[in-house]
């Protein structure tokens, strides 16, 4: 794996006391969609700010595309795209004007820019609204424009800070599709942060679970879920015969429990084990009347690694940390 983002022992302390990022180490491979999952105030945005050269780190080492972010920020800026959390598109310009301004700021030649703008606006389905003032756009349209702005110079790494924060479910799904398309059509690396579990689960190749400035776990969504003990298949088999032993004999089954005619079967991978399991039961003369497959969700994963559910983390003490960190980030810039 060629690492395109290398972070070693990154620490960021605000005002000498608030450790927003507390010694994190990770690598992101080229072409990967990497996500930071964590509650507000966990240190996600701070990490992005350091990696995108907006914030000076306190200590540690950060390289993006092999370039040290503190030593050569301008070079880093050239090779990355940033879609920030806030809506930063300009209300009083049209969509196209916004894109043109972005192209100029990133040194894209005018002729190339014009072609690319058409292409990108089509990609995010904004062709028709392109010449309207952005103030007439909906929240989802702004976010899509923001996304396409981040792509105008074909960055090697795209940073998405909470790409679907505050969007309704439908718009969120559209954003996900756009991000998936990107992944399919290019070798661009995406570094994103989110506090939505489904988002991390469905988009990211690998997820870092971050809480209170520390990485608590880092792996593929499947492995993270597996580490919780795999999937659960629930079965109902008609008749009085006990099939527990035959179920246990199927490869990939970790454990099986019978509770008045229902079976709870823990397996490593529900998708591949279900068919052989059903086959085995029917071979032994059982007739299955009900099957369901339950996979551990990211909420359980978060709970497992941080000791609290994501929802609790959002509501509890981390709120104040967030407010403080946010204020500092704004005033510091």
């Amino acid at each position: 794996m060629t690492a395109i983002i290398e972070v070693k022992d990154l620490v960021k302390v605000y005002n000498g006391s608030i450790r927003a990022v507390d010694g994190i180490t990770f690598e992101v491979a080229e072409g990967e969609v990497f996500g930071f999952l964590g509650p507000n105030g966990a240190g996600k945005t701070t990490t992005i700010a350091v990696l995108t050269t907006l914030l000076q780190k306190t200590s540690g080492e950060c390289k993006v595309c092999g370039i040290d972010v503190s030593k050569n920020p301008t070079e880093v800026r050239r090779s990355i795209g940033l879609v920030p959390q806030e809506m930063t598109v300009d209300d009083d310009l049209t969509g196209r004007e916004n894109m043109l301004l972005q192209a100029t700021l990133y040194g894209v030649e005018m002729k190339v820019a014009k072609e690319r703008i058409d292409e990108l606006l089509a990609l995010v389905k904004l062709e028709e609204a392109a010449d309207r003032m952005v103030k007439t756009y909906s929240g989802g349209m702004r976010k899509r424009l923001e996304l396409s702005e981040g792509l105008i110079h074909r960055p090697r790494v795209l940073f998405l800070d909470e790409p679907t924060l505050g969007l309704d479910i439908q718009t969120r799904t559209t954003m996900w599709e756009h991000i998936r398309d990107l992944r399919k059509n290019s070798n661009m690396t995406v570094f994103m942060t989110t506090h939505y579990l489904e988002e991390a689960d469905s988009l990211c190749d690998r997820i870092g679970i971050i809480d209170k400035g520390k990485i608590m776990a880092l792996d593929t969504p499947i492995k993270l879920k597996e580490s919780l003990g795999g999937d659960v298949i629930s079965l109902k088999i008609s008749g009085e015969t006990d099939f527990t032993e035959s179920i246990r004999s199927v490869e990939g089954v970790l454990s099986a429990k019978r509770e008045d005619g229902s079976y709870r079967v823990k397996v490593l991978n529900g998708e591949t084990v279900t068919a052989p399991l059903l086959h085995e039961i029917s071979k032994k003369g059982g007739s299955v009347t009900y099957v369901s497959l339950e996979r551990p969700n990211m909420d359980q994963v978060f709970l497992e690694y941080t000791g609290r559910s994501l929802r609790d983390a959002e509501q509890s003490g981390s709120y104040d940390r967030m407010a403080v960190a946010e204020r500092m980030r704004r005033s510091g810039s």
Binding site: T53, L54, R77, L82, P84, E86, M87, L105, S333
Partner: peptide, 15 residues
Amino acid sequence: DRRFGFLNKLRAAPI
């Protein structure tokens, strides 16, 4: 511009 994050966007640009 600072409030709406536009200033940060400029700070992140290679200008």
